[in-house]
Design a protein around this nucleic acid. Structure first.
Lengths: 188, 188
DNA sequence: GTCTATATACTGATAGAC
DNA sequence: GTCTATCAGTATATAGAC
């Protein structure tokens, strides 16, 4: 693995565990076993490297979400597959966590890939839910946009509750709840 | 307002806008118009002051949530009042945002008030939902613990989506979705 | 491409005068 | 209670040798 690649992957880890504000160039260099000069040769600075790392994490997350949502079965099965996919819950979401970082939110460069990832996710969830509704799996009264936002929000909020509690339990509970509500919305 | 009070309130603002890692003692002193010596006279250090500020924010949030949940009406009305209460969404949740801060989560002293606030909130939501179910407003199949976690998570996740998007829209969408799902879960 | 040297500003405190 | 002085360490680079 070359130096630029090690720098990007190290930055992905550190951004997830420490946020952007909490991650120093020095810490990145040590984690990547790269010198100061190396880092500034490959990237113009901390923000430039962070942008590369965030884009990488967003692409990875998108691929994993897509894998779950592209499975066979009813819309509810596919949403459930997404909700239940493996996560290191107590580490927080690699992308969602950045939405709380003041400097990420303040910088168009850094916020953009975060924004795009969530726009894509909500769009994809909306499609799956709309397909299910069209097949009669959900009532016509269900608004796919709103339900998609709710599903995405429950996952992100689940991370917050779990980290606050120091336990995965509230995350699992929240997922269970939204699954149940979606299931119960089936025509009766 | 005395100096200690100004320090606490300034720290509440800065913790919300910059997180714990992103907030320096110097920034707090400037915001509070207090000297270095003053701050270290009233508090043992940054962590001690942050703890006081977090406890204060948690108490305020609890009071506001309680005000919404203690209203008259059906359980769904009360949950809706909580979901729809005024919030400065793009600033993030004063308490939930801290659950993403690495040093808050790593420190038992700092995490405790965050943890307690969410435990209280989930408990209170669970009570309201269980009351509604007992009155036949929700189906017996609805699990109050899971639904409460879902409601709390949607709000926290709504903040994340909104900050990522730089717009309140995804927050409002997510709230709308969970409200709809809860409403649709009424016995048919 | 990588290394070491250097630089300015900030971080989070402590010490002691007033 | 508040002020100023001081401090070792870190943040985020830039410069130039190799």
């Amino acid at each position: 693995m070359d130096t630029a690649e090690r720098l990007i992957r190290s930055t992905q880890e550190l951004l997830r565990d420490r946020g952007y504000v909490g991650t120093s160039p020095k810490a990145i260099q040590q984690h990547a076993e790269a010198g100061q000069g190396s880092m500034y040769h490959h990237f113009t600075g901390k923000a430039d490297l962070a942008r590369a790392a965030i884009e990488r994490s967003a692409a990875e997350l998108r691929a994993e979400a897509q894998a779950a949502l592209a499975t066979d079965g009813t819309a509810l099965d596919r949403i459930t597959a997404y909700l239940r996919r493996e996560r290191e819950v107590l580490r927080g979401c690699p992308i969602g966590g950045l939405a709380q970082d003041p400097e990420v939110v303040a910088s168009p460069q850094l916020r953009q890939p975060v924004h795009e990832m969530f726009d894509w996710l909500r769009g994809r969830l909306t499609e799956v839910i709309a397909e299910g509704r069209d097949r009669g799996e959900f009532p016509d009264s269900l608004d796919p946009d709103a339900a998609a936002a709710t599903v995405a929000a429950v996952v992100q909020g689940g991370y917050v509750l779990a980290r606050a509690a120091g336990s995965v339990e509230p995350f699992d509970n929240a997922i269970e709840g939204v699954q149940s509500l979606l299931g119960a919305s089936f025509r009766h």
